[in-house]
Design a protein around this nucleic acid. Structure first.
Length: 554
RNA sequence: CGGGACGUAGCUCAGCCUGGUCAGAGCGCCGCCUUUGGGAGGCGGAAGCCGUCGGUUCGAAUCCGACCGUCCCGACCA
């Protein structure tokens, strides 16, 4: 196929939009792949859509290979389906109404609709089923950002599995997991499988695929030795051991006027900040005041707290704190508090300095189990300097884009929607489900984040909009056409730059657009009948005969 | 939803503080000429209800208010 740049809608820009920060955002706009319509709303221009379709095709091939079937469900969804699962209350949902007042939602994802169809599965003989589609998702995001990184409307490949028992369901999950690795590998994007946040659902099986990048909303924590990877929200790190002061037989009050932070406390007492505790009172959804207690040098992980409490929570108000502790933030501690205390595992052994629940006073020598009875849980965010929980190696922290997510949720949707089947033993049972998502738009952003240089994008061949960018300079039109025909004849997709522009502009655009191979036909070609072949990634260039182009590039 | 910033030509921006020769620049675009292996040069030209509405004023891009929109930080994130 030969596309002529003179006829394409390929609006490249010399400047990036002023508000763009992420490299992928700047380059995809500058190179004419996408344009913004509104906050979090993007149009894929012809080149961008070509890349999107290439990624879709890779996904289709790999999902086809595991026996998944493609279908297409609608965007507009009767609200009743979402009421059945209780998800109609999620704040990110767009609600719409038709002229007769019937209510619909624009789906965030399609569990409800697909499970609705799974109700037609009657017998264990029809299982397992693996379905997927590429369909628009709409989310009323409070804050879209970073170009394609977080948007309000996007196409997702979402897949769903239905199985008769856990063994079979895990097999379906595993097939998808393996397929995902192949998909990301073929797309040329580095993505790491990590155990993801299970949050309030606790105990479900879920993995994220995180692509390290210059911009993103997740933090990927990895061991330098490659044996551990997790999202920072749930990652475990082995913290350093504190230097404890001398052990006391019982807690001892000490006056600490005006000292309200752990750093200040450690400095005031001349001790290691890791030998202090940080008290974070929270109020749960049902109104209880719970004391979350972590080490003075740590930060509380909200998702871990959510898992530990099995409930949402918010920081307690000053009034609630005073009522529950009789003191203000900065002097709070577990001793003498008659509510629930959740303490981080780091506090299990050793004596720490804690607030005395008396303004301006702290307690030295506070020991869990002796002086207070907490529930222990992992509550801390890993920090730079932590060691790997598997091998003790150093942990690295990278910003990353979540490009895929796989989830096993058993009967969570099939039960409320009544999607059951008759098993071999004659019993009616709920279908066991899993769902599997990939955002091709985020894959595009992640690839550009990982593969670009100062001049522009450097696409992997597998997803590049064209195989070859053929730059034809003035005077070489004839040999340029021969080169295009040779490449086309070899089955390659050619972007033929036949525009009446100066060479510099054409080369700059070619670098920006990022097709992996550039071929130049110019004045030199008229003399020896050869063209220049340049590798976009390495910049290596050599002269080849037009007749050899097909095999040189292919 | 809290905090901050911004909105002037297709793009990037100046002008606003101190209201009145203030509708501007560069790039891009159109025409002609020259030029043609890394974003050339000359001449000519088109193009903006200065985000919207209201207020102050003899007079508003400029001052004030409200609204709308966009971006950034945070909260949120199936």
């Amino acid at each position: 196929m030969i596309a002529r740049a003179s006829q394409l809608f390929l609006p490249t820009l010399r400047d990036a939009p002023a508000d763009a920060e992420a490299a992928s955002h700047k380059l995809l706009v500058r190179a004419g792949y996408v344009r913004q319509v509104g906050a979090g709303l993007w149009t894929y221009l012809p080149l961008g859509w070509t890349v999107h379709r290439k990624i879709e095709q890779i996904i289709r091939e790999e999902l086809g290979a595991i026996g998944a079937q493609e279908l297409l469900a609608p965007v507009l969804t009767p609200v009743e389906l979402w009421e059945a699962t209780g998800r109609d209350k999620i704040p990110e949902i767009f609600h719409v109404t038709d002229r007769a007042g019937r209510r619909f939602v624009l789906p965030l994802t399609h569990e409800e609709t697909i499970t609705f169809h799974a109700r037609e599965i009657r017998s264990y003989r029809e299982l397992p089923q693996l379905w997927y589609h590429f369909q628009i998702k709409d989310r009323d995001e409070p804050r879209p950002r970073g170009g394609l990184l977080r948007v309000r409307e996007f196409i997702m490949k979402d897949g769903y599995s239905f199985d008769r028992d856990e063994e079979s369901a895990f097999a379906s999950f595993e097939k998808n997991r393996v397929a995902y690795h192949r998909i990301f590998e073929r797309c040329g994007v580095e993505a790491h499988e990590v155990r993801a946040e299970s949050g309030i659902m606790g105990g479900e099986l879920t993995f994220d695929f995180l692509a390290p990048s210059g911009s993103g909303e997740n933090t990927l924590v990895r061991c330098e030795r490659g044996d551990y990877a997790a999202d920072a929200e749930i990652a475990r790190g082995i913290p350093r051991t504190p230097e404890f002061p001398e052990t006391l037989a019982a807690p001892e009050e000490i006056e600490t006027p005006g000292v309200t932070t752990c750093e200040a406390l450690a400095a005031f007492l001349g001790i290691d900040v890791a030998a202090t505790t940080k008290a974070m009172p929270v109020t749960t959804d049902d109104g209880r005041v719970v004391l979350a207690l972590i080490r003075g040098d740590d930060r509380l992980s909200e998702s871990k707290l959510l898992s530990a409490l099995r409930s949402g929570s918010r920081p307690s108000t000053d009034d609630e704190i005073r009522g529950a502790f009789g003191a203000s933030g900065g002097s709070l501690g577990p001793v003498g508090f008659n509510g629930e205390v959740v303490a981080d595992e780091t506090l299990r052994t050793g004596q720490f300095v804690a607030g005395a629940n008396r303004d301006g006073w702290h307690l030295r020598g506070v020991e869990a189990g002796r002086d207070y009875e907490p529930q222990f849980a992992d509550l801390r965010e890993p920090i730079e300097g932590d060691r790997c929980p598997e091998c003790g190696g150093a942990l690295t922290f990278e910003t990353a884009i979540e490009v895929g997510h796989i989830f096993y949720f058993a009967g969570k949707y099939s039960t409320p929607l009544g999607a059951t089947f008759l098993d071999e033993d004659g019993q009616e049972k709920p279908l066991l489900g899993g769902s599997y998502g990939i955002g091709p738009g985020r894959v595009i952003a992640a690839i550009v984040e990982q593969k670009h240089d100062d001049q522009g994008i450097v696409w992997p061949r597998s997803v590049a909009p064209y195989d070859v960018h053929l730059v034809v300079l003035k005077g070489a039109e004839e040999i340029g056409e021969e080169a295009a025909a040779a490449l086309d004849g070899a089955g390659l997709d050619v972007l033929l730059d036949d525009r009446d522009l100066r060479p510099g502009e054409k080369f700059a655009d070619a670098d920006l657009i990022g097709v992996p191979v550039r071929v130049t036909a110019g004045r030199k070609s008229l003399e020896d009948g050869m063209v220049d072949l340049r590798d976009r990634a390495s910049g290596e260039e050599r002269r080849v005969k037009v007749a050899d182009l097909g095999k040189e590039v292919g």
